[in-house]
């Protein structure tokens, strides 16, 4: 019962955080300078009326909230306007209906753009995370098990170097290398493959994924190795490991049945928190390899100052990270019988 209440509290807190992010997300993008109606475009063909039309189309002619027509520069407006006619309420209303507005740049609903890109990113992050977790955990286990040997020093050294690499730099070097190896250097698939058998399409995608996934794996593997190693070192000096040895279990049995699960626990939290940090890495990897995912959408939106897309992506990512953290908390509860969520 206690646990149920705790879970409810956590969930409620996550919900509150989401609301906070939603509000922040709105105002953040309203305090920007410049006129979004002309974002990144300078065209002598665009006259004053045309600009006004664009502003109306994106709802920028309405007051931001009551009393404020604009926040940058701050323009005090009429406080008596109908609150439902303000940008904030329109934003909130649209959000509830699952709408994130229209991209300044692409004349498409942001939801469509993000939806199209999301799956590609999930694919990249998914495979990359799985590989880096598996490899990182394996190296970490290895390093901890062979503590105080040159094997450990090598594993730790490599991990530290991997951790120190700027993501985009590694991506560029790998792109350079990959292109000399004849690997595809851009995109998710060779265009025009849609008529081919499914397996062949997958193979093509896998080939395109190779370089971005490799970059991702190298960048995050190091961190997981270090965490796994230190966590496992802690576990392995616990008394119950000695008990297990006294019981006559061999090394493999001890690692598998007694050490790994306990040592994985800190990793669960880190993976969830990492999801937030991953965003920065994914932006770099996707834009170097032209991977059509959320990251490159954000990169383009940054370059074009396409705020609705940026705003939508920001919201999507923040909510995902919040939910992932909640999930990690709950998983932790499930995995570790000692924890009764505080």
């Amino acid at each position: 019962m206690n646990r149920t209440r705790a879970v409810l509290r956590k969930t409620a807190w996550s919900f509150f955080t989401i609301v906070f992010v939603v509000v922040l997300n709105f105002f953040l993008f309203r305090v920007l300078p410049g006129d979004p109606a002309r974002a990144g475009i300078r065209d002598p063909r665009l006259n004053k009326d045309a600009i006004e039309v664009i502003r109306v189309r994106f709802g920028l002619d309405k007051p931001i909230i009551n009393c404020f027509d604009s926040l940058n520069p701050v323009k005090v407006g009429n406080c008596a306007v109908n609150p439902l006619e303000t940008q904030f309420f329109i934003y909130a209303k649209n959000l509830i209906q699952g709408e994130l507005g229209i991209s300044y740049h692409a004349n498409r609903p942001v939801v469509d753009i993000l939806g199209e890109r999301l799956w590609n990113t999930i694919l990249l992050i998914g495979v990359g995370q799985i590989l880096s977790i598996i490899l990182g955990a394996a190296f970490g286990v290895f390093a901890a098990w062979k503590a105080r040997t040159s094997l450990e020093y090598t594993a730790v050294g490599i991990s530290l170097v991997a951790w120190s690499l700027p993501t985009f730099w590694l991506a560029i070097l790998l792109l350079f290398w990959g292109s000399t190896m004849g690997l595809p250097v851009a995109g998710k698939a060779t265009p025009g493959m849609s008529s081919l058998p499914l397996l062949q399409q997958w193979g093509d995608i896998a080939k395109h994924m190779l370089l971005p996934t490799l970059t991702y794996t190298i960048i995050y593997m190091g961190e997981y190795t270090l965490i796994m190693r230190s966590s496992l070192l802690d576990v392995l000096s616990e008394d119950y490991i000695l008990s297990a040895r006294a019981k006559g279990l061999n090394t493999v049995q001890i690692l598998r049945d007694h050490a790994l699960k306990n040592a994985m626990l800190p990793l669960v939290t880190v993976i969830a928190i990492n999801l937030g940090f991953t965003v920065a890495g994914v932006i770099q990897i996707e834009s170097v390899f032209s991977w059509p995912g959320l990251g490159s959408a954000i990169y383009e939106a940054v370059i074009r100052r396409d705020f609705p897309v940026l705003q939508g992506a920001f919201l999507l990512i923040a909510i995902t990270v919040i939910l992932a953290n909640l999930l990690a908390d709950l998983t932790y509860t499930y995995l570790d019988p000692r924890v009764t969520v505080d």
């Binding site: 993008f29 920007l32 920065a280 990512i317 919040i322």
Partner: peptide, 15 residues
């Protein structure tokens, strides 16, 4: 901690 900081950075740098 859960807010991805890159978009925040973009906004503030643009500001």
């Amino acid at each position: 901690l859960v807010i991805p900081d890159l978009p925040l950075t973009v906004v503030i740098v643009a500001l």
